[in-house]
Design a protein around this nucleic acid. Structure first.
Length: 112
DNA sequence: CCCTTGACTATCT
DNA sequence: GAGATAGCCAAGG
């Protein structure tokens, strides 16, 4: 398989994402040293033959990048939930606090 | 070569 | 806050 320096950099970053955490494509690209290559991250991950935690990479708005309901979407959602993350209508919360803040926003109308 | 596509983002309405 | 628009960059037709 043809692997570029870019691919290796991306793989290293993605592989370093701790369990229960997520990063955006742009963040991964930046961390790897390729600031404008958010769209290339997915390509690099697809090309990887090693088991990469690709499911921990989300869009900037913390949503799963696949169309809701698609095969890949469900797979990624399952993997994330298996790691203890919460997925609410495609949106992923990193911690209980984030989740609470999110729910707070939803329920804030009852807060006075 | 020119044009389209995509697991993206930032900005403007 | 959701939808449209414009940058972005590499790969494939």
């Amino acid at each position: 398989m043809k692997m570029t320096e870019f691919d290796q950099a991306i793989w290293r970053v993605v592989a370093a994402i701790p369990v229960g955490c997520v990063m955006s494509y742009g963040e991964v690209a930046r961390a790897a040293g390729f600031p404008r290559h958010a769209r290339m991250v997915s390509r690099a991950m697809s090309r990887s033959d090693k088991p990469l935690p690709w499911h921990r990479v989300l869009r900037q708005d913390r949503r799963i990048a696949f169309p809701s309901g698609s095969e890949a979407f469900r797979r990624q959602k399952a993997l994330l939930q298996k790691e203890g993350l919460r997925v609410i209508s495609g949106k992923v919360c990193q911690s209980e606090q984030t989740a609470k803040a999110y729910l707070d926003k939803l329920l804030w109308q009852g807060e006075t």
